[in-house]
């Protein structure tokens, strides 16, 4: 049962939970920026949680269905419409053969996850259907979808009821200012104590360069470095290091001016120092930030990071219990 792409939206890609295991070769995990939204969308339409969905950014696609389908849209508040009639987000709904799924303008967040019962069935690459566009790998021909594409859909195992929903308290909103919790470390010692304090005091804004590779932030004060003799191989700038691996969520600050948080399609390494890492529980939130969103970084310790991770896992368990 293929889906015909009438218009593609801004950048709509096939994503699942990603391809771990190849980061040491520069191939990032990829997958949905908001993994909770992807899991929820799949649960709503009766898919395995890791089935491939479409991830739309800011602007939804227009999709023509040639057979009946059950669909759910989660993540950003990007209201779906069936033949022009609005449907709820975070709620499964039916589309009849011949109907068109389109979207209203975005109200909140940045990325929507569009799940179809049966899952998007493009051929997996290295164990995943996620699109890694830089490496022309996975997804639909290794790229964002375009009008004229026909997306294959897997056979749905179960006929799922429409109207299944994830209650509002089980959704997560980025809030304003958005707070991102950070465990400091890595090359934190490269900046002065004062600069470290300042980083957490300042309110930053999401810059326009914000994509699947990473989110850049602006508006805070520049960070002052501790003096040093550049180590051999690092380069002369105080923000340079001997090229090393970058953790997902790590915060590099080239030249000490604009922090960049690496996300699912991260470059796996490079020569810029990092001051810490956004905790795993807050990575999904970043994928929902629009440009200019006020953002504060909050210093936390490992125990807090692990507790937050548990809290996220319990939320997921709760919707699993309700929906499976």
């Amino acid at each position: 049962m293929p889906i015909d792409v009438l218009s593609a939206g801004l950048s709509t890609t096939v994503q699942d939970l990603g391809r771990p295991g190849y980061y040491h070769l520069g191939i990032p995990i990829g997958g949905a920026m908001d993994r909770y939204a992807l899991r929820a969308a799949n649960l709503l339409v009766g898919n395995p949680e890791d089935a491939a969905c479409l991830e739309a950014v800011f602007l939804g696609p227009e999709l023509a269905f040639s057979e009946d389908a059950v669909v759910a849209v989660t993540g950003a508040e990007l209201p779906p419409k069936v033949d022009g009639e609005t449907r709820e987000t975070w709620t499964s709904f039916r589309i009849r053969a011949g109907q068109v799924l389109s979207f209203d303008y975005i109200r909140d967040g940045a990325r929507s996850c569009i799940a179809v019962a049966g899952g998007i069935d493009t051929p997996p690459a290295l164990g995943s259907r996620s699109t890694y566009a830089i490496g022309a790998l996975g997804g639909f021909e290794g790229r964002a979808i375009q009008s004229g594409d026909r997306l294959p859909v897997g056979r749905a195992d179960v006929s799922v009821a429409e109207g299944r929903t994830v209650s509002e308290k089980m959704r997560r909103n980025s809030g304003s200012p958005c707070e991102l919790r950070v465990v400091t470390g890595l090359y934190w010692h490269r900046i002065t104590e004062e600069a470290g304090g300042q980083f957490f005091e300042d309110t930053w804004k999401v810059a326009s360069e914000a994509d699947r590779m990473g989110y850049r932030f602006q508006g805070g004060r520049p960070l002052e470095f501790v003096d040093r003799e550049p180590p051999f191989g690092a380069g002369s700038d105080p923000s340079n290091i001997t090229d090393a691996c970058y953790p997902y969520g790590s915060i590099q600050v080239p030249g000490g001016t604009e922090p960049i948080v690496l996300h699912r399609d991260a470059v796996s390494g490079g020569g810029y120092f990092m001051i810490g890492t956004v905790i795993s529980a807050d990575m999904d939130l970043i994928g929902q930030l629009q440009p200019h969103t006020d953002t504060r970084f909050l210093q936390v310790d490992m125990e807090t990071a692990l507790a937050a991770r548990q809290e996220r896992a319990s939320m997921l368990d709760a919707i699993r219990q309700r929906l499976s």
């Binding site: 465990v183 470390g185 934190w188 090393a244 997902y248 790590s250 890492t277 905790i279 990071a305």
Partner: peptide, 11 residues
Amino acid sequence: SFGGDEHVFVE
């Protein structure tokens, strides 16, 4: 050094 709650970085 820990890179968040999912990475260990070893220099």
